[in-house]
């Protein structure tokens, strides 16, 4: 049995959140550079140049990449042989969000209630997903998720008869309807299967993958590439002002589902895709 104190969890979440909001992950930066080289239209190239300069300025000035430092999504892989002491896991994580928000000069973007809408003033609470795993692993991934892309994410309960074509159509509709709002070029997380609750969670988890990391199942690896090509053929481009790069990558996660269901969820992430991970 491994013992982990909540103070350590709090400090880890705080550091991960600040880092995620300020430093663009290397894989995203590499993909944006490649996209800039591919774009032929001056406006699309210019936008990608500004986006890359934005990342450099954020790092230099220790300022968030985007003013929307988001809802803090926290994914925890919790080993069966890990004992958390000092308090509750979710309290420690929310305290970490508060601390990271203060230390990193992040925005307080959370309201206390969907209809009363009073800002909580400390950017908490976040959204916590705990996955039980074997052994003594305690792995924390922090993914601040902005509302521009989150608001353009969608879920649909397709019929099995809709099949792969139906899924493709839903994905392309989602990208088209989103237009400039999710800040393309986007990352596209797709959850296929499960149920009404599980599909969006799969879609969100899919966004934690590194660009270029394909689904291990060849069927879905090939489908990811097919969808990426189809999305970029829409021609929306950076900021939906025209161009070749509407999406940087597509990630599909699947789960078994009911004989009568084909749930599909599309979770979008903006070009300022942010996530950081630490293992305690």
């Amino acid at each position: 049995m491994k013992t982990v104190h909540t103070d350590q969890i709090r400090a880890t979440v705080a550091a991960l959140l600040e880092d995620a909001c300020i430093n663009l992950p290397a894989d995203v930066e590499v993909a944006l550079r490649a996209a800039r080289e591919c774009e032929t239209q001056p406006r699309a190239r210019h936008i990608l140049e500004v986006v890359l300069e934005n990342a450099a300025m954020a790092r230099r000035d220790r300022v968030p990449l985007c003013q929307d430092t988001g809802v803090t999504n926290v994914f925890v892989e919790l080993g069966a042989e890990v004992c958390i002491v000092g308090g509750l896991l979710d309290d420690a994580i929310n305290d970490g969000i508060r601390e990271g928000t203060r230390q990193g000069y992040l925005r307080c973007s959370i309201v206390n209630d969907p209809l009363r809408r009073v800002n909580t003033g400390d950017n908490a609470p976040g959204v916590l997903v705990v996955q039980p795993v074997a052994g003594t692993t305690l792995r924390i991934t922090v993914c601040p998720k902005g509302a521009g892309c989150e608001n353009m994410s969608r879920v649909s309960m397709l019929s099995p008869a809709d099949g792969r074509d139906g899924v493709t159509q839903f994905v392309l509709d989602t990208i088209s309807k989103g237009g400039a709002n999710p800040c393309p070029p986007v990352m596209v997380g797709i959850g296929l299967g499960g149920d009404f609750a599980q599909a969006p969670l799969l879609a969100k988890k899919a966004l934690l993958r590194t660009i270029g990391a394909r689904n291990p199942d060849p069927l879905y690896a090939e489908y990811e590439m097919e969808l990426l090509t189809a999305i970029n053929a829409l021609g929306l481009g950076p900021q939906a002002l025209g161009g070749l790069t509407t999406a940087l990558d597509v990630f599909i996660e699947t789960a078994p589902c009911h004989i009568a269901s084909l749930p599909v969820a599309v979770c979008l992430n903006c070009h300022a895709t942010r996530h950081t991970t630490a293992t305690l």
Partner: peptide, 10 residues
């Protein structure tokens, strides 16, 4: 340009 908050800040 959306997502360029660190750039526009300047």
């Amino acid at each position: 340009i959306g997502g360029a908050g660190a750039y526009l800040r300047t």
